[in-house]
Amino acid sequence: MKKTGSSIAHYFGVTMCNIKMALLTIVEYPSNILGWLISNPIQFILGFATIKFVVEQFGEINGWSYGQLAFLYGIAVISHALSMIFFVQGWFMGFYVIEGDFDRFLTRPLSVLYQFFFTNINVLGLTDLIPGILVFVYGCVKTDFSFTVTNVVGIIVMLIGATLIRGGIYILLGSTSFWTKSANDFGQFTQEIFDKTTMYPISMYPEAMQLILTFVIPIGWVSFYPASELLGIEHAFSIGGMEVWITLAVGIVTMLIAGLVFKIGMRRYESAGN
């Protein structure tokens, strides 16, 4: 018990130090902040405008009104932003494998995966949060979403779960590099797929695809199911208002599986120069 406590304190101390270093690095390159402050909002504002135009053309999407879609989009972008802050390194795992950049993590008394993510914690990912929150608030207003205690807890729980699901998937995709020995950067593809499956209701897709997105690659839990619950929209797997908690559970399980796969992959790690 005491050991666990001191271990948590240890990781907490290192995390604070890493955040401080990340902030110092940002200050070293002020033009970066400006760049990301422009580029990330552009991406999501344009993305949201696109949804608006599509809805204007086709009306509701599978029974989801414009306001509800804004809610869904906003919450999807927020969990995306959180995953960018904590887990964006997963996109570049292949390069670490090929270049032998895990070496220094392996010679330190901390979890390799922890160091991999937190040594390069991406504080600038906060710039993704801005458009997310804006659109989300807009969606809340449009749908008259009430911020009751249950709802606020629900949102927090689902965001943690959704971020873990995304992070887990980044790790799983990145870990393939241990076997393929190639520096695949699936980042853009991953985001493209996530965009289509988290920013629109997956109920619009064929049943087989919905099943895959629910049980195999659990992207449905990132935004669609929990947002449905929060908005009170019926869906194929209504489970009596437990969706946000299932999202959290799915997130934890995805992370655990990803951690295991990473650990197995790490045994095949060859460092560089062989």
């Binding site: 240890h10 101390g13 290192v14 604070m16 130090c17 890493n18 270093m21 110092l24 690095t25 070293e28 390159y29 330190r108 008394p109 901390l110």
Partner: peptide
């Protein structure tokens, strides 16, 4: 060492890592 920062920052991180 962290390429962008002063040497002491890297030492400070190691101080936390190795307690």
């Amino acid at each position: 060492l962290n390429w962008d920062l002063r040497l002491e920052e890297s030492f400070e991180l190691l101080r936390h890592i190795y307690r």
